[in-house]
Design a protein around this nucleic acid. Structure first.
Lengths: 318, 318
DNA sequence: CTGTTAGCGCTTTCAC
DNA sequence: GTGAAAGCGCTAACAG
């Protein structure tokens, strides 16, 4: 019993005893059995939706979530939201399966109807990677505005002035914030954004292709293009190569997300990394809190962004 | 107890009773608790290595494995093999963690040294997606030769004659088999493979770029290129676009694997789909068998391949 | 064919 | 502060 307390870091154990237990743990190579633990604590299943949309990030999302679930001894039920006619049905399936809480990625995490039906069913929801976390609702998120600001500043610091921006899908709140981050940073540097330098890419490779053709066909070509995600940045890279431009000597390209395509294309993309796996792990933890009867809702976790400098950006041509 | 027998589909239960139990299960919405089950059956942890190499397939791999692990109530320990100086150390870490069996993707599944050290440690190994399953060793795999044959035949049926091939990393046994499948199908059609039409791509996007530059720079350009995986096919597509070629009107491109890039690029790639998620699930099942004391090794599971016809292939230009 | 007993590894509760 | 008792949901082994 005392050993249990030590393992769980509970108080009311004399330091001397605690130390002895810890020694024994090491000596015996003891590892707690999270399955057995779960039988007692009764932490049930938690549901996780996913949409193929952010498919490059999917593996990190799954990995982080499952690793945490393993550690915490809870069961994760994953459900592809597009396998159902409507996302609401996907959520319903999880509720019927008896999950204690649900993790909702965008755009579901901003869907009021789904949130309400969940509340009615008494099942908690954790918003994952939402751009606007709501008060009193558990959420894990990043600061999209700040990420865009960091990247824009990076390009500015490199000496770029003619910077183009490729927008994401305006339906996603993240896309709006990233654009805002770009615009305000440009303004703060005293630069006016030429509207022909802002193109729509819809977060897709295909959209990035179109945007790149427009941008690189301009009389006065930008010296750098900042795309709101990596898929679009990869498309821009492909088009630029096609036009015989060398990257980054003739053109700098920057992405956002640090998904696997960022290191697949050549040269590898300078981008903003979101710690998706850690974020998913946090979401599982929040969901487990929610599933407990002692539900104390409202935990917010903001993940740290990081600028990853790779080979696709450099100072502008002289 | 009788209920337990029914749930597990054991014999020695009168049909009438079985039916009654099943009714009750339905009426009560009973769902077995796989965690509790696992405490009794003692099915321990099973380890799973992964390499970023096939990163696009990673999410399917993880998803299939975790879903099965959830169902079977076993814990999955995943370890990125490149997080360690040598793959052997990654395996060792899992062994030290106390896993009962390990799932090995390529190229680890063909590494004799690793297999031997595992045997010495008394830990079973399941080969995942190996090209040459060994007798007496559990494995789940596909017929790479047959997949390459299917695709080559598809191009042949479309009317192509000048078909180029982009090889994978020759260190992977799958790469060798895919090339063999291509060559033998061409030979069977009475066609001689022009060696300038066979290029190395090393399974990477970068390598595909180089191969495409070589192939599309040839005096007599092939009318179709078959790449041994989707990453390389995507690279070829990018280069072709750059040269102003229209796909598939001027050039057909085919890939292999049906990873997410196949539907990311435009036009979407005709490719060979492997049911990675199902394969991973099978691997977990095999691993669990292995972890039990009653170890009856040698299960082989061959997964079914499917040709996915998308927009990147068409008859050759007139 | 069916039911009883015991126990998996852990934690909650409550005595001491 | 510490430990004894009980029980989570399930199944192996045995008894009837």
């Amino acid at each position: 019993m005392t050993a249990s307390r030590v393992v769980n870091g509970y108080p009311h154990v004399r330091p001397a005893v605690r130390e002895k237990v810890e020694e024994a743990i090491k000596a015996l190579g003891y590892r707690p059995n999270s399955l057995a633990r779960a039988t007692r604590t009764g932490v049930s299943q938690i549901g996780m939706l996913y949409s193929n949309a952010s498919s490059s990030n999917l593996s990190n999302y799954l990995m982080g979530a499952f690793r945490q679930a393993s550690l915490s001894g809870c069961q994760l039920l994953i459900e592809p939201s597009q396998a159902h006619p409507t996302p609401a049905q996907a959520v319903q399936k999880l509720v019927d399966a008896g999950v204690g809480a649900v993790i909702l990625p965008p755009p579901l995490c901003d869907d009021v109807a789904i949130l309400e039906s969940l509340e009615k069913a008494g099942v908690g929801a954790v918003s994952f990677a939402t751009a606007r976390p709501r008060e009193g609702a558990p959420a894990v998120f990043i600061d999209d505005f700040e990420g865009a600001r960091m990247m824009t500043q990076h390009l500015l610091d490199l000496g770029h002035v003619d910077i183009a921006f490729v927008r994401g899908d305006p339906a996603h709140s993240t896309a709006q914030l990233r654009e805002k981050g770009f615009r305000e940073t440009m303004a703060a540097a005293g630069l006016v954004v030429d509207e022909t330098y802002v193109a729509d890419g819809g977060f897709s490779y295909r959209g990035g292709l179109d945007a790149a053709r427009h941008l690189l066909g301009l009389r006065r070509r930008p010296s750098a293009i900042f795309a709101a995600n990596d898929d679009m940045a990869a498309a821009i890279s492909a088009v630029a190569h096609g036009l015989g431009l060398s990257i980054p000597a003739d053109l700098s390209i920057a992405g956002f997300d640090d998904t696997s395509v960022a290191t697949t294309v050549w040269p590898e993309l300078t981008t903003i990394r979101q710690p998706i796996a850690d974020m998913a792990a946090s979401a599982v933890l929040l969901a487990m809190d929610l599933a407990r009867p002692s539900a104390e809702p409202g935990g917010h976790v903001q993940a740290q962004l990081q600028l990853i400098e790779r080979a696709s950006t450099a100072p502008p041509p002289a």
